[in-house]
């Protein structure tokens, strides 16, 4: 007896993501999902970002996803931002239900930004909607300039691409043109911000992008 179904296997994840987004919308919180390979500079950029938002009196929060340890959460815990560490154990990506649990630990009222620092991985996180409003993909100069063509699905989804550690470009003899050339086939919708959390280059541009996205979220509601 053959039964025709056509049911979405990831239905539970998607339904949960929709719920998360609704809750964030209600509270006017712009949520960005930050994805990249391990070591591209997500946590360091977040440290700088939180410090800048703190200085401007803008309340923010971070859900930090890692397989193990709370080291990233500890690195981010200096300022006023609310930080929740999510350990995925063997999980190679965050799921929307883990984000739901994280959201329960946060005070969302008055919050402007929620950053989700996804597990460092350029494959699986791209396939799981968490309920975010925008996807941020980081690519560091130290990783080489060929990652866009190698991981097209992740880069296609990006709403903004951050080329990080640009202060190392000279030492690494980094050819940026390859990045822009590959993006012509993958994604020219997302702006590319060349950034160094260390020198501060591009950080203001990134903060402006965040504020504009939040404004457009507020304008929609």
């Amino acid at each position: 007896m053959k039964i025709k179904v056509v049911a979405n296997v990831l239905e539970a994840n998607e339904a949960r993501a929709v719920e998360n987004r609704r809750l964030l919308d209600q509270n006017g919180v712009l949520c960005v999902n930050m994805m990249s390979a391990p070591g591209s500079g997500k946590t360091t950029l977040l440290q700088k970002t939180l410090a800048a938002l703190d200085a401007g009196g803008t309340p923010s929060a971070v859900l930090v996803g890692d397989l193990q340890t709370s080291r990233d959460a500890e690195r981010l815990a200096d300022g006023k931002a609310q930080i929740v560490q999510i350990n995925t154990g063997q999980g190679c990506h965050l799921t929307s239900s883990q984000v739901t649990h994280g959201l329960r630990e946060l005070d969302l009222s008055g919050l402007a930004f929620l950053f989700i620092e996804n597990v460092g991985n350029m494959v699986c996180p791209a396939s799981f909607d968490l309920g975010e409003h925008a996807k941020v993909v980081l690519l560091s100069t130290a990783e080489g300039n060929d990652k866009i063509a190698k991981y097209p699905v992740l880069f296609q989804q990006a709403d903004v691409i951050l080329l990080t550690k640009v202060d190392l470009a000279g030492v690494l003899e980094y050819d940026k043109s390859r990045v822009y050339e590959d993006l012509k086939h993958i994604n020219t919708r997302a702006p590319v911000i060349e950034l160094s959390a260390k020198t501060g280059q591009g950080v203001n541009q990134w903060l402006t992008w965040l504020k504009e996205r939040r404004q457009s979220l507020k304008d929609r509601s």
Binding site: K2, I3, K4, V5, V6, N8, V9
Partner: peptide
């Protein structure tokens, strides 16, 4: 990006 279960065949 969907993963769809199209059909299931059960033993009679």
């Amino acid at each position: 990006d969907e993963i769809l279960l199209i059909s299931v065949t059960f033993a009679e």
